[in-house]
């Protein structure tokens, strides 16, 4: 009876692993393989030529520029929000946390719409901007603003969580012993939360480089000027130059793989394991942050 149960368990185990491997193979591994195989369909020479296209290069530059602005700004904001929320008590704290998580629950297209309604012609401050000849929507500033919006909760959520998990006793001890605010931040707080900062950088970089829907609304799709890499991929794909589209897509796929690798290494090194599926609405179980 018990032997039968054990062999039943072994069959069940094999079955479950098989189902999981099959599901992952079709939905996760295959799309990734398709990106690279489609890009190399016409050979390496064609692939490299597609990447050397000046419009693709311009799209890469704009994506890098956007990411290099959005990620540090949101990390700085996350540090401020984390410091205020995790180190002090004030009324409305949980409301503030909810508001910070808001962009996460907004459809990308609606995120873009929000910024059109503020900065577009006919928007809240659009007419004023127009009078001063400042173009935000259908220009690079709009792309950067919407990218800031969609990546905002990622970094902030990580930093608030890690600062809350750390507690403030050491900082308070240093403060009473006469350390300056700057000394406390550089010598106590930052070393303690550096992996959290790194984690926030990884998550927001991936999102900033890949944002599509929101940026698509505000970009205006001017080739060589306001096309980020994902938007450029769409244009190439829609004009039936799918090899070039996949060639450009390999750059983003490689960035995604680097993100996953960095995340896996970080989680193993720090024993830090958490779900970032839902800032604000964290996993229904377990601790959010576990430090081994």
């Amino acid at each position: 009876m018990s032997g039968q149960g054990r062999s039943g368990m072994r069959v069940g185990r094999g079955l479950l692993i098989g189902v999981t491997v099959l599901f992952f193979a079709v939905f996760l591994f295959a799309p990734l393989v398709v990106v690279f195989s489609s890009a190399l369909q016409k050979g390496v020479g064609y692939y490299l030529a597609a990447l050397a296209d000046p419009e693709t290069a311009a799209a890469v530059r704009l994506t890098l520029l956007t990411t290099c602005i959005a990620v540090p700004v949101n990390i700085l904001f996350g540090l401020c929000a984390g410091w205020a929320i995790a180190r002090y008590d004030f009324p409305g704290k949980s409301l503030l946390k909810t508001v910070i998580a808001l962009p996460f629950s907004v459809s990308p297209v609606i995120s873009g719409l929000l910024f059109v309604l503020v900065y577009g012609s006919g928007g809240l401050i659009g007419p004023w901007l127009e009078a001063h000849h400042i173009q935000v929507i259908f220009a690079v500033p709009g792309i950067i603003l919407t990218t800031l919006f969609v990546t905002l909760p990622l970094a902030a959520h990580e930093l608030i969580a890690v600062l809350e998990a750390q507690g403030k006793e050491e900082e308070e001890a240093a403060w009473t012993l006469g350390a300056t605010g700057r000394q406390i931040f550089w010598k106590i707080t930052l070393p303690k939360i550096k992996w959290g900062v790194f984690y926030g950088v990884i998550l927001s970089t991936a999102r900033a480089m890949g944002e599509f829907g929101a940026v698509s609304v505000v970009s205006g799709h001017i080739r060589g000027l306001t096309n980020t890499l994902p938007l450029h991929i769409e244009i190439l794909y829609n004009q039936y130059d799918s090899v070039a589209a996949f060639a450009a897509a390999t750059l983003l796929a490689l960035a995604a793989l680097a993100t996953l690798a960095a995340k896996a290494v970080l989680e193993r090194r720090t024993g830090l394991r958490k779900d970032h599926a839902a800032p604000g609405a964290a996993a229904a179980g377990g601790e959010e942050w576990t430090w081994a």
Binding site: G210, F212, P230, L231, I233, L252, A256, K263
Partner: peptide, 9 residues
């Protein structure tokens, strides 16, 4: 992967 891979890709 679905978080890391851009949706357009």
């Amino acid at each position: 992967l679905p978080f890391a891979l851009p949706t357009a890709v």
